[in-house]
Structure formats: structure tokens, C-alpha cells
């Protein structure tokens, strides 16, 4: 029984990763791609790991898969946050149809805009 529930989790995880990577290919600029890919791939990999834990139980593979779930859930948004901040400071523009960019306005206002490396 647990095997089939685990397979369903793995299948849903792979499906979400597929959506995330379609987003990585289709969306127009770097921030939108980062957003779609981070959310979908994080939950997708967590689903795969949880499904593996349900299939394997408490043996060598299952416990390590369960340990990986909180690790992915903490590290992946942090990496996305660092990438977005670094890209904005390095001068990567938003999509030209974007509505507003309060961060750029505030950086100019404070007079601490750095030149692109």
C-alpha cells in the first residue's frame, strides 16, 4: 500500500518539476524564471524525497531521503533570494512591460547605485 502512495508522490513531484522547467523556458525575464523554477522545483524534489521515504521505510535510503526534505526547503529559497539580490545589484533589468520597480527608484534616491562589474 505504501508503495503506491509513494509512487503517487513521486509522480506529482516529477510533474511539478516539469511545470517549473517549462516556466524556466517560457517566461520573459530572469526574475520571473527564478520565481517559477524555485517554487516548483523545491516542492517537486520534496515530493520525490517524501515518496522515496514512504516506499523504503526506515532503512538507509529512506532516512536519508527524509533528512534531505528540510534541507532543500531551507536552502533553496535562500539561494533564490541571494541570486535575485546579486542580479539586481549587478544591473540585470526587469522585463520592459513590468509595472514598477521600487527597488531601482530607492537605489537612485539613496545615491548608492553601484556600477556593473
Amino acid at each position: 500500500m505504501n508503495d503506491y502512495i509513494g509512487l503517487v508522490f513521486i509522480f506529482i513531484g516529477v510533474l511539478f518539476e516539469l511545470f517549473g522547467c517549462i516556466g524556466l523556458l517560457r517566461l520573459p525575464d530572469m526574475y520571473n524564471r527564478l520565481q517559477a523554477a524555485t517554487k516548483c522545483v523545491t516542492l517537486g524534489t520534496c515530493g520525490i524525497m517524501f515518496g522515496i521515504f514512504l516506499m523504503q521505510g526506515f532503512n538507509e535510503i529512506g532516512v536519508k531521503a527524509l533528512v534531505a526534505v528540510p534541507l532543500i526547503f531551507i536552502t533553496s529559497p535562500t539561494a533564490a533570494h541571494a541570486l535575485a539580490r546579486g542580479a539586481h545589484i549587478a544591473g540585470v533589468r526587469l522585463w520592459q512591460k513590468s509595472v514598477c520597480d521600487r527597488y531601482e527608484d530607492d537605489k537612485k534616491h539613496m545615491g548608492k547605485e553601484k556600477p556593473a562589474p
Binding site: 517566461l27 520571473n32 517559477a36 526587469l94 522585463w95 509595472v99 520597480d101 521600487r102 527597488y103 530607492d106
Partner: peptide, 15 residues
């Protein structure tokens, strides 16, 4: 948003 053919997005950075 990704699978919709017209991609209904209005991105921007808010505070």
C-alpha cells in the same frame, strides 16, 4: 500562469 497560452503576468518590484 506557465501553461496559459497568453501568460497572464504583470511583474514588478514592490516595497
Amino acid at each position: 500562469r506557465v501553461l496559459h497560452p497568453a501568460m497572464p503576468i504583470h511583474p514588478g518590484i514592490v516595497k
